[in-house]
């Protein structure tokens, strides 16, 4: 298949992909306190790869992914389930939020909880869903 898109688009896609990806991670991380979260982060990360797939092709974009789209989907759902089940192990009802604070060196504190893990699962699942759908549609010839 010859290249129907301009080089500018390709270069932009190449440069934007890691940028958007890192941005999506930031959005995911701070989502519990500030605007953002798993859905928005997932949408951004997926956009990065969709842009790449449009500029090149879906096979190329799939290669850039650390996991296959279906594995992302499955991992996402598994993370969601695990985050819910952790509280069951502690004897609480399914999906009770549990929090812990890690004390990092230099006086930093990291506040972690199962809802954050849940959000990460949503993030992965959204990426998986979007990329499965979009890559398959881009593949239509």
């Amino acid at each position: 298949m010859s290249n129907p898109y301009s080089n500018i688009f390709r270069i932009a896609a190449t440069k934007l992909r890691p940028l958007l990806f890192i941005l999506s991670l930031i959005v995911l991380y701070r989502g519990h306190q500030q605007p953002g979260g798993g859905f928005i982060g997932g949408l951004m990360a997926a956009s990065a790869y969709i842009l790449y797939a449009l500029a090149f092709n879906s096979a190329e974009a799939r290669r850039k992914l650390p996991l296959s789209t279906s594995a992302l989907l499955g991992t996402g759902l598994a993370v969601i389930l695990v985050s819910g089940l952790l509280s069951v192990l502690a004897g609480e009802p399914f999906m009770t939020g549990m929090w812990t604070t890690l004390h990092l060196p230099f006086g930093q504190e990291l506040h972690l909880g199962t809802p954050v893990l849940f959000d990460a699962g949503v993030y992965l699942a959204v990426i998986g869903v979007l990329l499965t759908i979009m890559f398959d549609i881009i593949d239509i010839e």
Binding site: G31, H32, Q33, Q34, G37, W99, P115
Partner: peptide, 8 residues
């Protein structure tokens, strides 16, 4: 909920 973003 330990979060400031209520929607989230």
């Amino acid at each position: 909920g330990h979060g400031r973003n209520i929607v989230n």
